[in-house]
Amino acid sequence: MMQACGIVAEYNPFHRGHQYQLKQARQQSAADCLIVVMSGNFVQRGEPAIVDKWQRAQLALQFGADLVIELPFASACQPADLFAQGALQILSMLQCTTLAFGTEDVTFDYQKFGQQMLGQVQHQQFTIDYQKTYATQWNDFLTAVIGRRVTAPNQLLGLSYALANAQLTQPLKLIPIQRQGAAHDQTEVATAATFASASAIRQLLLDQQPAGAVQPLLPYPQARLQPPYINVEQLWPFLHFRLNTTWPSELADIYQMSEGLEYRFNEQNRESTSWSDFLQRVKSKRYTYARLRRLALYTTLNITNQDLKQAQSWGPQLRVLGFNQIGQAYLHQQRPQLPTPLITKVDAKTGATNGPLGLQVRVDRFYQQLSGREQNFKRRVIITNKEFN
């Protein structure tokens, strides 16, 4: 019986640090199959991915993954706790036995923490109020539970994985992997560096730096990342138009719009000149940039509370983006006992407005407008014969 190790990723874009993590996950888990649940064309920070999901899935398969499943928009563009829950539910459905993730602190007992936190949640000693800053609530509670504040972004996400994992009927074994090189959001690249953050690499690509500046950070030729590179600033004209033509009372229906933010969005839009300028004007101590970026994206895409409710009513979907021979064998083994069908192509039924991938198709149409490449219909699952590097 084949065993699988899961990884949650964005690969925005795929770089040497991701290649290292996949290699370590295979070694430390001793799993037969590495399954990556990867965000689609929009990522957790509330921005479009720099290149589309198909390019990123192809690179993941070339450099270590055996099977890539899409994390749908309804889970991918969410606060850390909901992002983690959506991803872990998919890995659980696929019967993964382990979860590997990068972190700044591998000495921390994430498994024990998850169980400890689960007890607190079950007794309603910790509930999340999404009208307040999630990071602050989370860290205040962590301080009370473990006696220290956690600020490292990957460790914070690891703690969210641990709690989401503890809530599963059959929790996975957690395998923390030491993060290499630059910090998660560090935009500078050290001289002679081989590991850089995805943020730094995106900035180099968007600044159109010569290939020599980027190539050492990638395990593949830079030409594999096919332009156009999608930049969040490209969304500004669309957001500006939406805010110019929509009453605040209508904006109130946007997912996670609360506390009068619809009026703040409407007012600050008038003088704003770009996406980043708008966010700076809207920013206050009460709201993190992460929340405001996601809210601005929901507004641009006109994602309402009803849209999310309908998408989530279908439950987690198993949208296959690609696999190799190992991944194919694992799917063949698991298919008879999967709680929901595998989706290997989008058709009129699955992609319908009220279908299981209706919201995904809708947001991908916007990404397709920016990239010029079809994202769902007539796209085939990536199949590669290479097992792993």
Rank of each mutant, 00 (worst) to 15 (best):
R293I: 03
F113K: 04
S284W: 10
L235Q: 06
G315F: 11
Y298A: 08
A182G: 07
G181P: 02
R45N: 03
A164W: 07
R373P: 00
A329L: 10
Q226D: 08
L156R: 06
R291M: 04
S75N: 13
R362Q: 13
F73R: 12
F366I: 09
I383V: 13
V43D: 05
R319V: 11
T246M: 01
Q89F: 03
Q124M: 05
N154E: 07
L342K: 00
L174D: 02
V361F: 02
R26I: 02
E188Q: 15
P336F: 00
T384I: 14
G102I: 07
L331D: 01
L156E: 00
V320I: 15
P72K: 13
L88E: 03
L279G: 05
S313A: 15
L318H: 01
G212F: 08
K112D: 05
R270V: 13
R264K: 15
Q62N: 14
G114N: 05
I343C: 06
L174V: 01
P227Q: 11
W54I: 10
Q124G: 00
F265T: 04
Q111M: 06
W236Q: 12
Q209H: 13
I230M: 04
Q317T: 11
T350N: 13
G351T: 03
N305T: 15
N41D: 13
Y263K: 14
Q333P: 04
T273V: 14
T143L: 15
I128C: 02
W275N: 09
M117F: 14
R365D: 12
Y134L: 15
T384L: 15
P336R: 03
